[in-house]
Design a protein around this nucleic acid. Structure first.
Lengths: 341, 341
DNA sequence: ATGAAAGCGCTAACAC
DNA sequence: GTGTTAGCGCTTTCAT
């Protein structure tokens, strides 16, 4: 396979000339620059990643830590993976994918072997062992999610509390007086997924402020059980006219339950939630509400990381993305009181 | 950061001794081997990936080409990604994630820059441009999926035709006389996704062989439209007592449609399909049928690739995994004829 | 504007 | 069983 020596020899110039013609790190006459580029194209020369990495001590690879544990939604995880890869490629970086348990133990290995220049960390929990591993290893990293204590690490997340507020306020504005939250599974709270807790807090606070009745159901990791859960809630709280759903994937069992009692959306019930930009085949229902800004988040996360790589010393930053409401026609004013379903 | 020289100097041995003590590629006395390992642990030495890669011309990185295009199911894609990463790690390889359009153009770049040792290719279509790119670049690769012409490339896939047959036969065995296929979206067929076509063929053939009535509906990439599609099919074909669903994700709209007409599963209708091993939060229904053996597939794909890396010359292999039936309680004997729903 | 040469950290062929 | 040394392919400092 042709290397930089071959190119240099062919042109009768030195290796450094070829190198600089490519990097532009020192002036090269337009004539030779053109000749170099022509030769490179002609000989199909690609600088060896290993040689370059050894010389620069930079691999231009970013590790993506994606645990893919029991608390992540597949669609969202995939959005993030795709988004991170695209954003990194746009900056000339490749992405090393680390999943599962490896996600924790790999930090030290990858840093010490100088396999990667930095880390993007998904599904960050309240007190996430990975944050300490990253600090110990002296890694450059951006967290997607909000740990209790970010410290010197950059973070990006959705303003989940604001999202919860916004949804409840929208329903209240439409005239709903009694709202049911289909929240995250209780495991999410137990595992310290702050997004779930923050969303719930924001929603609860706004419910109180708006003076609406408030009911909560936890989503369950099973379709039929989820259906039953909603049905039970409907029986126990017949006043409920609207639902706020944390996970869009939990909308399908909700719709099934509503359908079982002969109700229609939004005629009989309004449903709002966090909707996901669809990627790939998607047979799931879309709801009005807050769009999960996965693209913006991954872009921001990668941008922060790149910035950190360029300016190693700078102080840590923390970014909360504001939610925006998108209408998909699943929310409307409630039927007037006294019109039973 | 400590390197192999530091370790050697500290012990008063040569670099090669340290290297060989680690690789085991030549006999080292137990005494020095122990001293070396102790020093490595103590000094926290990790061989630099770049140095090693440059010396061995092997990066111990595998590229995973995952287009994540409109024709993939998120849950399944994630299973594959996770499975490939785990399998590669088990063999001491890391995984470079390549998504989207990059999936095609990156082949040449990664091969020529010697960034990776091999490729795992997901969502392989009937005539996939990536196969030619891989051949042109002289890459080592295993395809997950079946192109029309694999040639010298290794492949792994599910025996989709057998899966289709098995499901229809199971329903026929239970006594169903009229079956409806909720197939892949028509885009899947148009885009040359052979899995969809092979599954349908297997199912059709068995329907003919078993002498059952056969109806087909294409899944649509939208919940409500999917519900309407099933409702229409139910009206036009009142004899149908069972459904075969290609994508488990399309089960939710099917259930919603059945619920809308007041029917229950499996009392009024049986439903079988390709069920997915759940990963992460999953609010979707599980159905009886064939389990998508994503773990086995990724394991097999990686094993084939490793084998190829060790034995560069060997002839190409092609592996079709046999489906096995798993019961989740959504299929039963039909109600006797004359008992309308 | 260009060339020469010293590394980057490791492996492996060649000594002994 | 162990040491010596020549690369692997690139970048970058020091010369000119």
């Amino acid at each position: 396979m042709v290397n930089i020596n071959d190119v240099a020899r062919r042109l009768g110039v030195s290796r450094s000339t070829v190198s600089y013609a490519l990097s532009g790190k020192r002036p090269i006459s337009d004539a030779t620059k053109a000749r170099v580029h022509a030769a490179i194209r002609e000989m199909d020369f690609w600088p060896s990643a290993a040689g370059r990495a050894l010389a620069t001590s930079s691999t231009r690879i970013i590790a993506l830590l994606a645990p893919m544990a029991a608390n992540a939604t597949p669609e969202v995880a995939l959005q993030f993976v795709h988004g991170v890869v695209q954003a990194c490629r746009a900056s000339g970086y490749d992405v090393l994918m680390v999943t599962g348990e490896e996600s924790f133990h790999s930090v030290q290995r990858l840093v010490r072997a100088k396999q990667v220049d930095g880390f993007i960390v998904l599904d960050v929990e309240e007190s996430d062992p990975r944050t300490q591993a990253l600090r110990d290893a002296g890694a450059v990293a951006t967290l997607v999610g909000m740990p209790a204590e970010a410290g010197d690490l950059d973070c990006v997340d959705i303003d989940w509390a604001a999202a919860g507020s916004l949804l409840v306020e929208e329903l209240a504005r439409l005239g709903h007086q009694s709202i049911c939250l289909v929240g995250a599974p209780k495991e999410a709270h137990e595992l310290g997924m702050t997004y779930a807790t923050r969303f719930r807090s924001g929603a609860r606070d706004s419910a109180k402020t708006c003076g609406v009745q408030w009911v909560e159901v936890a989503a369950v990791n099973d379709f039929f059980e989820g259906v039953r859960g909603v049905e039970t809630a409907l029986e126990e709280h017949p006043d409920v006219t609207a639902f706020v759903v944390q996970h869009e994937a939990a909308v399908a069992p909700l719709f099934a339950a509503l359908s079982n009692v002969g109700a229609q959306v939004p005629r009989d019930y309004s449903v709002v939630g966090i909707s996901i930009d669809k990627l790939g085949l998607n047979f799931a229902p879309s709801v009005s509400g807050v769009r999960n800004p996965s693209r913006e988040m991954t872009r921001a996360a990668v941008a922060m990381l790149m910035d950190r790589l360029e300016t190693p010393g700078r102080e840590a930053r923390s970014l909360l993305l504001a939610p925006e409401y998108v209408d998909h026609g699943t929310a409307a004013a409630p039927k007037v009181a006294g019109t039973p379903k």
